[in-house]
C-alpha cells in the first residue's frame, strides 16, 4: 500500500513525504431510460491537504496534554478588555491586539454547563464520530463565549453539569481530542484514549 502523505516543517518550509493523491479511472454515466446514451462521467479524486493551525496550534497541542486553553484581551485601551474567548482567538476582535493565552481547565471542570445541545442522527462523509452525535455548546464561568463540542457519555440536557475529557493517547490533534462527560462520570467509563 502506498504511504500516506506526511509533512514536517524544516527551515520554515514544508517537507512532504508519501502520497498526497491517488489515481482512479473515470467511469461513464449513462441514461438507463434512453438507450444508455452518455450523460456524463465520474471524476474520482482523493487528495490530502496540508493545513497550518498557525497561532491556534498551541490550543490543539494542549488538548493532547489534558489542558484546555482560552484567550483573553488584556490590552489597556480596548473597550472590551477582559473578554475571554473559547473558541480560542489569537487576536482580540475589537482592538486586534494579540490575546493572552490562559489555562481554563480547572474552571471548565468546576463550572461547565450545557447551554444547548443537539442529538444528530446523521453525519456527513468523512465523519469520524459515532452516531448519534451529541453536539453540545458549553458555557462556564469567566468565559464570554459558548464553545461547541460533543458529549461522549449520557444524554444531554440544558443546564447539565459536564467536565472535559482529553484524548491523550493517540491524539488526532483536532477538536475531536476534546469531549465532555456528565460530572461524576467514573474514569473507567471513558472511551479508549480519553482521560480527565
Amino acid at each position: 500500500m502506498a504511504m500516506f502523505g506526511q509533512v514536517f516543517v524544516k527551515k520554515g518550509k514544508y517537507r512532504i513525504k508519501g502520497d498526497f493523491h491517488h489515481l482512479a479511472a473515470h467511469t461513464p454515466i449513462r441514461d438507463a431510460d434512453n438507450a444508455f446514451s452518455l450523460c456524463g462521467v465520474t471524476n474520482p479524486r482523493e487528495l490530502t491537504y496540508i493545513h497550518s493551525y498557525g497561532g491556534e496550534a498551541v490550543f490543539f497541542e494542549s488538548l493532547s496534554r489534558g489542558t484546555l486553553l482560552a484567550s483573553r484581551c488584556e490590552h489597556h485601551a480596548c473597550e472590551c478588555r477582559g473578554t475571554t474567548y473559547l473558541p480560542f482567538r489569537i487576536y482580540c476582535p475589537d482592538c486586534l491586539k494579540r490575546n493572552r493565552v490562559i489555562d481554563v481547565t480547572d474552571e471548565a471542570k468546576r463550572s461547565a454547563r450545557i447551554y444547548t445541545f443537539m442529538v444528530c442522527e446523521r453525519s456527513g462523509a468523512f465523519s469520524l464520530l459515532e452516531k448519534p452525535i451529541k453536539f453540545i455548546n458549553i458555557a462556564f464561568d469567566g468565559i464570554d463565549t459558548v464553545l461547541m463540542s460533543y458529549l461522549s457519555l449520557g444524554e444531554p440536557r440544558i443546564g447539565m453539569e459536564v467536565v472535559p475529557i482529553f484524548k491523550r493517547r493517540d491524539p488526532s490533534y483536532t477538536i475531536l481530542d476534546l469531549s465532555w462527560v456528565p460530572k461524576g462520570t467514573p474514569a473507567e467509563e471513558l472511551k479508549p484514549g480519553f482521560e480527565f
Binding site: T116, M118, C120, G124, A125, I133, F135, M148
Partner: peptide, 11 residues
C-alpha cells in the same frame, strides 16, 4: 464534529 451542518445549526 460530524461533518454535518445540521448539527451546528440545530443546537
Amino acid at each position: 464534529l460530524g461533518q454535518i451542518y445540521t448539527g451546528y445549526y440545530a443546537v
